[in-house]
Design a protein around this nucleic acid. Structure first.
Lengths: 208, 208
DNA sequence: TACCGTGATGACACCAAGTGACATAAGGCG
DNA sequence: CGCCTTATGTCACTTGGTGTCATCACGGTA
């Protein structure tokens, strides 16, 4: 039921900026914090890890942690805006003639390949999130935000308001269902295939 | 985007138990806490209200608050199991011959009348929740839980697994969209009508 | 009547998340 | 050289949340 990998942790985008500078501090503080958090959450669990410990592992202080991440959970979800962007651009890219749900389907396809490239990390994070209700809570927020962004992208295509939200929301539901099956180790199918199956299932179920 | 009234605050179920006893303490501690919380959250906002203050207003202590509610947010959502039950029984009640989405539609109809009877409270709570991201977060959890319960009810009707989840999730999305329009004061239409419209919209959008 | 168990509450200490205010140090730049 | 900027550290503080023990009135029982 939990997604767990909506973000692109470990991309350490910040490092690019630092690269050309002389290292006044150890570079990529954000990435180090993410890495430490992922490790510690995985080892002892989310609840049994304090922010102070994460910061210490990264050679920083608690205060600095909270300068990079709004709270203890956010460190696992940083980067989810990138996924949102992917969805939005992909929806915008599909030809005007395509039906709204088909535009969303195209975005889902694109997202699938993105996740497929990082399966390792995705599964690892999923396990952490699945083990903690608080993290699942945060994940729902991210998915809701994603759905809202997709709805907005559909509106820019001229789709009316109830339709835009419903299409986006249904699309995200399809993604969730497919993702859940994808991370199940007993079910080694490509995400793209699972998404297409789920989408078909949705169409069948809503057919009058 | 936020529901805000998934629960039935103020029902003070506990009072029934106390009624026949001699009042050793003021009766209905839970109800008093809920009332105080709703008032204070409404007056000064969720963040500017401490649990100690709520408890004090109810003539109790912080410690007792946390005996009744798992956390500061939960006080606004206590009773959501009742809604879950309504959905589940309603889905189970519809004739076997009905399509899965129609069973969910029946449940939505039942929920609509339930909310219609408490519009006042519903809107008040919605405003509080809408004003605070943390509360919206919790609401998403409740909706996810609701969707999971509906999916389970559908499975008990013999619906397969991807279909059950997708139907439930789509149904809840319909409910959310309709509810959002219902609490909008510029749009004074009965909830049931809005739900039916949204459902039709969903069908149109997913039609191949 | 004296005693005991029980259940809701209070008192208190404690931990950890999160914030605000200020200090520090090193680099860039005029 | 000195100033400004920027990332970090220090410290104190609030508050959500929990563990533990005390209290106290009732109801039952001997």
């Amino acid at each position: 039921m939990s997604l767990g990998v909506i973000t692109v942790a470990g991309m350490t985008l910040g490092a690019i900026n630092y690269a050309r500078r002389v290292a006044r501090w150890q570079p990529d503080a954000r990435g180090r914090l993410q890495h430490a958090a992922l490790t510690l959450y995985g080892e002892r669990g989310f609840d049994n890890t304090t922010v102070a410990e994460i910061a210490e592992h990264a050679g920083l202080t608690k205060r600095t942690f909270f300068r990079y991440f709004a709270d203890k959970r956010e460190v696992l979800f940083w980067g989810s805006e990138a996924l949102e962007e992917l969805f939005v651009t992909e929806v915008a890219r599909t030809p005007e003639s395509a039906a709204p749900l088909d535009a969303v389907a195209a975005a889902l396809d694109a997202a699938a390949t993105m996740f497929e490239e990082r399966r390792e990390l995705a599964v690892r994070r999923q396990q952490i999130v699945a083990a903690n209700p608080g993290l699942q809570e945060r994940e729902l927020v991210k998915l809701a935000s994603l759905a809202a962004a997709v709805a907005e992208a559909l509106r820019r295509r001229g789709i009316g308001d109830p339709a835009a939200i419903l299409t986006a929301e249904a699309g995200i539901a399809v993604f969730r269902v497919a993702f859940e099956r994808w991370v199940d180790p007993t079910n080694p199918q490509p995400l793209q295939r699972l998404i297409r199956e789920s989408l078909q299932e949705l169409r069948a179920v809503t057919a009058a």
